[in-house]
């Protein structure tokens, strides 16, 4: 998986969780919670979806690293094999 594919996967999952959100407007360095109004249940569903689709297990202690889109991509890039 390359960086572009990873970003696409993450945005797809976020779109499933917040279908009303305009994901094209997400500022990558700003809080996802603030931008698309995700709560703890949404965050858990996000982590479960990442587990199911990308086979990555994210400990609860690492949740703060998923606070922004950039943070998510950074964390996942380090956690799964990347190409390109």
């Amino acid at each position: 998986m390359n960086a572009s594919e990873l970003r696409s996967q993450v945005l797809t999952i976020l779109g499933d969780i917040a279908p009303e959100a305009d994901l094209s407007c997400i500022a990558p360095d700003k809080s996802l919670r603030d931008q698309i109004d995700i709560d703890s249940m949404d965050l858990l569903n996000f982590v479960i979806a990442l587990h199911e689709r990308l086979h990555v297990d994210i400990p609860e202690a690492d949740y703060p690293q998923l606070a922004t889109l950039d943070g998510c991509l950074r964390y996942l890039s380090a956690a799964i094999p990347m190409s390109g």
């Binding site: 703890s40 858990l44 587990h51 297990d57 609860e60």
Partner: peptide
């Protein structure tokens, strides 16, 4: 991850 609990 699928079995985690929320404080709520």
């Amino acid at each position: 991850v699928t079995q985690r609990l929320l404080i709520g």
